[in-house]
Design a protein around this nucleic acid. Sequence first.
DNA 1: AAATATGATGACTGGGCGGTCATTCTTACT
DNA 2: AGTAAGAATGACCGCCCAGTCATCATATTT
Lengths: 220, 220
Amino acid sequence: MPKQTFFNLAENKREKLLKAFLMEFSTKSFEDASISAVVKKLGIAKGSIYQYFEDKMDLFFYLKQHCEQVKQSYAKHIKREDYEDFWQFLRALYQEGIKYDMERPLESNFLFALVNQQHSPTMRQFYIEWQQKALDMFTQMIAYEVKIGHFRQDLPPKSMAYVLVTLTTKIGDYMTVTMDVDIQKKLFSGEPILAHNSGKTLLQAVDEHIMILKRAFSKP
Amino acid sequence: MPKQTFFNLAENKREKLLKAFLMEFSTKSFEDASISAVVKKLGIAKGSIYQYFEDKMDLFFYLKQHCEQVKQSYAKHIKREDYEDFWQFLRALYQEGIKYDMERPLESNFLFALVNQQHSPTMRQFYIEWQQKALDMFTQMIAYEVKIGHFRQDLPPKSMAYVLVTLTTKIGDYMTVTMDVDIQKKLFSGEPILAHNSGKTLLQAVDEHIMILKRAFSKP
DNA sequence: AAATATGATGACTGGGCGGTCATTCTTACT
DNA sequence: AGTAAGAATGACCGCCCAGTCATCATATTT
């Protein structure tokens, strides 16, 4: 947990701080991210950071939690029962993701990078936890679709959920490969990734994924 | 390129060296991998390494090339025309992968880890190159399946190839998630990953993937 | 105006790293 | 046995890092 001092800070100072560190952690691995480099760029003393946070991990963890929480608040009002099938629901979830990305690109990019960070045991642990949560959620949803007879019954919901989550996670790569979006550049410049071209690129990618998965999952 | 000195080394010494570094690079990122730590474990002087290689990258690159080359030699005699459909062919490719994994677990694990290394621009570059090669190969193959009327025609082969390659790349994760294989542990202990349970686990994963992709890709 | 509390500072510590190189040791050939 | 070439060594360099802390600056309360 950050120290009280951090929360006493003037809001614009706090935001500048967070932005700078979001950038650093979006473009480097946790180990390579350098507090020294960031404070230099910000023009403040390194000691200050340690008035706000216990250590590097405390800072990182705060960023992670904060971003996840905000993102969650975007997604949580999207409900399956408001859509006539799973795929429209899924599409709507993505659309919220785009909104989050447009409004808070740095945070969105940070989370995006986090999911692709896997080396160093600590980061891998974060990834595994995140994946597990996503898997549980989608496994449950898919089991429901199976139950109501929309999805095939000859495969474990968990396996289907895995395929879905994996492709979802890697959708940035998909955009890079099939649609020439330079994600690495966007991470470094702080531009929105998912919202590239007002989100149209992502939605096209999503629609192609749905075209594939629909056939793969639905009842024959 | 390694220096001549390296190739003059007694074979068992060279192999011990390679094994130790394969281990290090399988369990750490390139940046975090420590030459100092490995030489300490090997009980040799750090200077020696620099008699063999130009620098850290030279060493890494040699390992990468060497492993890729050997692995290629396993796969290259598997030909599409010897199988009656794409999926049997794909399965056979995996079976060669298992063989390689059983015979050279450290090398196999190194390549496995390499593909999951993405932060640090250099490693990302390697990954992108690798992915590009795999994509090109499968795009071509899929285009062929489309042409002979086995696969659907309403999706770009490149998109289908992407889905295939992504799931293929992440099959280790699939095993972890749906079959309780602790891959991280295996990396650290140097046990074969893909050949876990004589490869049966992997083949089951492959078969489940095929069950999904067959429907997704084939003509309606 | 004085006293107190809070925030800001940056020199410093200890540690790890990749990489160097003058020196010593080993081997093999004359 | 003597010599020359190749291999092995490890102290050392320069660099960068996370984290510390005594000191100073500023704001708030009395």
